[in-house]
């Protein structure tokens, strides 16, 4: 139901972010997640960041 794509935040301005997913760049809304900054990875769905991707903690 929900095609999502991991992407890296390149720039941020006024709650909007430009993200890069393997060379595909797009402006998305980043206003629903707190404390995002360039270099972070987010899960993108329908033009908004729905989650910040964190590194796995185990091993």
């Amino acid at each position: 139901m929900c095609v999502g794509l991991p992407a890296k935040i390149l720039t941020m301005k006024d709650g909007m972010a430009v993200v890069d997913a393997h060379g595909a760049k797009r402006e998305i809304s980043a206003e629903l997640i707190e404390d995002l900054e360039p270099g972070d990875y987010v899960m993108v769905h329908a033009g908004i960041a729905i989650a910040k991707i964190t590194e796995e903690e185990d091993d």
Partner: peptide
């Protein structure tokens, strides 16, 4: 190409 894959993923 990687960017084609990227857009297709999106």
């Amino acid at each position: 190409q990687e960017s084609v894959q990227g857009v297709c993923g999106m």
